[in-house]
């Protein structure tokens, strides 16, 4: 049971990172990144391939973060004139292209065979048998750092500007600020976090192949942000936790409900998640969390 709990919590941490990245890009910035899974996949592949080449895993992780950040920034530059729906289409197309390249450029990525034997960072630190726990601690630390940084950004003048471009980019232009500059930075920071999440995915499973990555990763991240409340980092972490535990925990329904087969259960689980989401959108359309403020009239809480 403990093993299962540790495994699930590790998945929660990775999902929380993806959710936090999307919360910056879409929740705060209004940029619909349907290609999230492509950036996540790229992070996993950069980290995985570099690690099996013999690079220290933490260095590979750093390269993955920078690489995904750079490519994210580039994709934001390309889609500068695109607003909501079109940006969604472009990012989705971008991610699918990336997946095709990774699937078929076998000389570089080992194609459909996948990359195996990816070593985890800092494995020598933990006593024998505690590797999974150690990795979980590392993943939780990553979530904590990213959460702290994003909270500080959200309360800062930068966060205010990001939310302003979401509400009305035309006004931000009329105030003399560069909307493109804001969007590129938001995509780059979100990309770095997605690179981190993808790297942890690669380290955790120690094996990656293209079938592990698909739009469902994007869908879960959007669910986390919708449930958590757009703009609320705290809400996103909490809802990533809830979502993964619901998805994972509902496996045990098979023990509780007699006559339920594995395939039926799989379908019912997804069905329940869908019902839950629709109910939430009806009864609490803004989600549970609240967006942080950059400044308050009494000045006491305008700290970041």
């Amino acid at each position: 049971m403990t093993v299962y709990l540790i495994a699930t919590l590790t998945l929660v941490a990775i999902a929380a990172l993806a959710g936090l990245a999307l919360n910056l890009q879409w929740g705060m910035g209004g940029l619909v990144n349907f290609g999230l899974f492509g950036f996540y996949m790229l992070g996993a592949y950069i980290a995985g391939l570099l690690t099996v080449q013999g690079l220290p895993p933490l260095v590979a992780l750093g390269v993955a973060m920078l690489g995904v950040a750079a490519l994210s920034a580039l994709s934001a530059l390309i889609s500068v004139r695109l607003s909501e729906d079109y940006l969604a289409i472009v990012t989705l197309g971008f991610a699918e292209c990336l997946r095709l390249v990774i699937s078929y450029e076998g000389w570089l990525t080992r194609g459909m065979l996948g990359v195996s034997g990816i070593e985890r960072p800092l494995q020598a630190w933990w006593p024998r048998g505690w590797g999974d726990t150690g990795f979980l601690l590392l993943a939780l630390l990553a979530v904590l750092i990213v959460y702290t940084v994003l909270q500080a950004l959200a309360r800062s003048p930068f966060g205010r500007l990001v939310r302003a471009t979401r509400d009305d980019p035309g006004v931000v232009e009329a105030l003399g600020k560069s909307v493109l500059g804001v969007r590129v930075r938001v995509f780059a920071i979100g990309g770095a976090i997605l690179g981190l999440a993808g790297s942890l995915h690669a380290f955790y499973y120690s094996y990656i192949d293209p079938t592990q990555f698909g739009p469902i990763i994007t869908a879960y991240a959007f669910m986390a942000v919708v449930v958590g409340g757009r703009g609320s980092n705290r809400g996103v972490v909490a809802s990533a936790f809830t979502l993964i535990f619901l998805l994972e925990g509902s496996r045990f329904l098979i023990d509780l409900v007699p006559g339920l087969g594995a395939s039926e259960l799989a379908a019912i689980r997804l069905f329940l998640v869908g019902v839950g989401l629709v109910a939430l959108l009806i009864f609490k359309p803004d989600g549970f969390g609240r967006e942080p403020r950059s400044a308050l009239a009494d000045k006491t809480s305008s700290r970041f």
Partner: peptide, 30 residues
């Protein structure tokens, strides 16, 4: 408009374009 705004040209809009989810104070601060 951004270039002109940086050179001291400000404007308001015919139909108000407040940044709806930001607070009143944040609207001005931005």
């Amino acid at each position: 408009p951004a270039w002109r705004a940086r050179r001291g040209l400000a404007r308001t809009f015919q139909l108000s374009r407040e940044l709806a989810s930001l607070t009143v104070l944040e609207n001005v601060l931005v």
